[in-house]
Design a binder for these strands. Structure first.
Lengths: 359, 359
DNA sequence: ACTGAAATTTGAATCGATCCAACAAAAATG
DNA sequence: CATTTTTGTTGGATCGATTCAAATTTCAGT
C-alpha cells in the first residue's frame, strides 16, 4: 500500500519512521542494516510503518557519508562518453574491468569530458573509490587532475613516463620487434610506419628531431622496436617514412596518400594501432592493391575486429581483457603502493601479411 | 608542495583548512564553491593553506548529502556488466544515452547483477538521480526493485504492460507487419518464426496456448503483427512454426534444426531479433543453403552488425540511438509524470531477402 | 567624523544516515 | 533471591560538506 501522498514535498527520512514507530533512530537504522539484532516484534512494527509511510529505504546518500566507501570504480577519459561503447579497444578493456567489478559486486561510473572545464569538475565530483584512466590523449592533464583527488588510480595506455603513478602497459619495444621481424623474415625490405602521435596535435612525416623529442614514450618505444629489429636485417631505417596520425580516419588516409606518393612505395606497413591498420586495409583495397600480394600490413593491439575483416589482420595482440581486469583489481584491493606492470604481447599471424614479391 | 605525511590516517577536511587559515567553515566552503564572493586576499590565503596541507578539495560525499543531486544516471540490467560493452543493441542504446549525458555533463553509472541478492542491493545503493532499465529478462523484478527507490526511472524494451511505469518502446505490431508484408510481396508462402520468449525460461515450439498466455506483450505483439499481415495474403498462419528461443546461440540453433527438420521447410524466416537472424544466417550458410536464394530472412532491431554481415541483413530498424537519447532526457529533465512513448520503426531492405523461388 | 549601502564573514542548522558506549530489561546461574 | 550474563534499545556523536540569516566590516558621500 503506497502512501496517499505520492508527490509529497519532502521525502520520508529514517528519523520520520523512527518517530512514527516509537523507536529510536538507532533501532530504526538497525531494522534495515542489521535486522537480525532487532527483536522480531519491533522489527516487523518498524517495517510495517515504513511500508505504510512509503519509505524508500535508507538513502544511500546518507549512508555513504558515514561508510566512506562508494563501491564503484570510475573510468575516465578525455573522449566523449560514447567512446566506451564505440571504440573496439575500449570495449574489450571495459569487458575486463566489468568482469572484475562483477566478481566483487562493484559498480562502474563512466566519467568524461571532451570539454576542459567540465573534465575537471567531473573528476573532482565523481562518486567513486578510485579511477582507471584511459590516457588516450591529454593523458597528463587527466593524471594531474586525478592526482588531486588523492584517490587510488591506475593509468592505462599511459604514453609517458612517470614513476610516481600506478600504471599498466605493454612491452612496446618487444611487440614492435615481433612485428618487424615477422615482416623482415617474409622478405620485405621496403617499409613505411603509420605512427601514433609523438606529441599532441601533430600529424605528418616525423623527423628524427620529433622522434627524439617525443613526449609519448609508448610511441617512441614502438618505433625504436621496429627500427632495432629492421636494422638487424641490414635495412637502412633512416629511409623509412614514419607518418604521424591522430589514430583516426582522416589523418591516416592522408598518411597513406603521402606514403604511396613517394618514389619507392613500401611493400610492408607497420601500423602502431589496429585502428590505423584497418583503415589502411580499406584504403589499399579501394586503391586496387592486393593484401598481402602487393602490400603486407601488421597492426598493433589485437582488437576483435581485426579477426573479422578481409583479409584478417596480422597484429601484435595485447592482453587487453587481462589489463582491464588487473586495473580494476588494483583499485578494488588498493594497498597504498604504486604499482607498475608491463604485460607481454603476442604476434598473431593472419592473412594480411605474406611473402614479399620477389623481383 | 605536498604534505609531509602522505599516508596520514585521516584525510584533511574543509574544517581543518578553515581552522588553520583562521576563517569560518562558511568562508572556507565559499573559497571552493563560490570563490568570487570572498575577498581576494582571504581567498588566496585559504587556498595556500589548503595547498600546503594537501587538501584534496571538497569531498563529493559531503557535498552530495547537502546538494541532493548526484548528477549521474544509472543504467541497470540483470545481465552482467559486460553486457553493456558486448551486446550490439545495448551498445547503440548506450551511445544515445551517452550523447544526452555528455550534453548536460552528467555521468553514467552502470549497475548490474546476474545474482539476485546483489541486484537488490546494487539497485538500492546506487548513487544516481534516476534509472534507465534494460528489461531484457526478469524485467518485472527489476522494475519492482527500482520502484522502491522512488527515483525517476524509465523502462526500455519493457516486454510487458504496466501503465504506471514510464517506458519507451517501439510499435511492435507495425514493425512485424512491415517485415511480413515485405516477404509476402516477394512471393513467399512458407514461413517460420524465430521468436523471443513469451514467458521466462522456455524454449521450443510455441503452442497457441502459450501465445495466448504470453507474459511478454512485446513478443506477443510482434507475432500478432506477423500473423495479421500474412493472413491478408491468404496464408494459413496456424501452420507456421513458431520457435521460442532465449535469443542466444544455442536455443536459436536448436530452433533452426527443429524448423528445418519439418516436412515443408520454410522459404522465409521472420526473426524477432537481429541477433537470432544473424545466427540463422550463419547456420543456413553452414548448411549449404543460399540466402536469399533458398531462404530469405528478416531480422528485427537494426543493429549495425546487420549491415556488415554477408549477406547484409534485411531488418526492421528501431531508432535505437534516439530511444537512448530520449530515455536519458526523461531522467535528466524529469517532471514527475509518467511518460510512455512508442517510437516508429522502419523496414531496411538489404541482401538477405529476395523473391521466392517459383515452383 | 558620521551615515547608509554594499560587501564580507560568521556560525548555527541541515542534509540522512551509521556507530557505539551506556543503559535497561530479560534470562540464566548460583 | 541476589548476581551475572545475554539481549535489545537508546541517544549523542559523527561522517564532510553547504546554506542562509544575522553580524560585522568597508567604503563612498556628505
Amino acid at each position: 500500500m503506497a502512501s496517499l501522498l505520492e508527490g509529497q514535498a519532502r521525502p520520508i527520512r529514517l528519523a520520520d519512521i523512527a518517530k512514527a514507530a516509537g523507536v529510536s533512530h538507532g533501532t530504526a537504522s538497525n531494522v534495515f542494516s542489521r535486522p537480525e539484532i532487532v527483536r522480531a516484534e519491533v522489527r516487523e512494527r518498524v517495517k510495517a510503518v515504513a511500508e505504510q509511510m512509503g519509505y524508500a529505504g535508507p538513502d544511500p546518500k546518507g549512508r555513504l557519508l558515514r561508510a566512506g566507501k562508494v563501491n564503484a570504480i570510475g573510468v575516465a577519459t578525455t573522449e566523449p562518453l560514447s567512446y566506451f561503447f564505440d571504440d573496439p579497444f575500449a570495449r574489450v578493456m571495459m569487458g575486463g574491468i566489468s568482469e572484475a567489478c562483477d566478481a566483487t559486486g562493484a559498480g562502474i561510473a563512466l566519467v568524461s569530458a571532451a570539454n576542459q572545464e567540465k573534465l575537471a569538475w567531473n573528476i573532482q565530483s565523481a562518486l567513486v573509490d578510485g579511477f582507471i584512466l584511459f590516457c588516450i590523449e591529454g593523458g597528463s592533464r587527466l593524471v594531474d587532475l586525478t592526482r588531486e583527488r588523492r584517490l587510488p588510480f591506475v593509468a592505462l595506455e599511459l604514453g609517458f613516463q612517470d614513476e610516481t603513478v600506478s600504471a599498466i602497459g605493454v612491452d612496446n619495444v618487444a611487440g614492435a620487434r615481433l612485428a618487424a621481424r615477422h615482416l623482415a623474415e617474409l622478405g620485405h625490405r621496403r617499409f613505411a610506419v603509420l605512427s601514433l602521435a609523438f606529441a599532441d596535435n601533430r600529424t605528418g612525416f616525423a623527423t628524427p628531431d620529433i622522434v627524439r623529442g617525443a613526449l609519448y614514450t609508448g610511441t617512441r618505444d614502438r618505433l625504436a622496436g621496429y627500427f632495432e629489429e629492421l636494422a638487424r636485417f641490414g635495412i637502412d631505417t633512416t629511409k623509412i617514412p614514419v607518418y604521424e596520425t591522430e589514430n583516426e580516419e582522416k589523418s591516416t588516409r592522408a598518411g597513406l596518400e603521402a606514403i604511396f606518393a613517394k618514389d619507392e612505395p613500401p611493400t610492408a606497413i607497420l601500423a602502431m594501432s589496429d585502428r590505423m591498420a584497418l583503415i589502411a586495409i580499406d584504403w589499399l583495397k579501394a586503391r586496387g592493391l592486393d593484401i598481402p600480394g602487393d602490400v603486407s600490413i601488421v597492426g598493433f593491439d589485437g582488437v576483435p575486429d581485426g579477426a573479422l575483416c578481409t583479409p584478417a589482420l596480422t597484429t601484435i595482440a595485447q592482453p587487453i581483457t587481462e589489463i582491464g581486469r588487473r586495473a580494476a583489481r588494483m583499485i578494488l584491493d588498493h594497498d597504498g603502493t604504486v604499482r607498475r606492470e608491463t604485460m607481454g604481447v603476442e604476434l598473431i599471424v593472419r592473412a594480411s601479411t605474406g611473402p614479399a614479391r620477389t623481383g
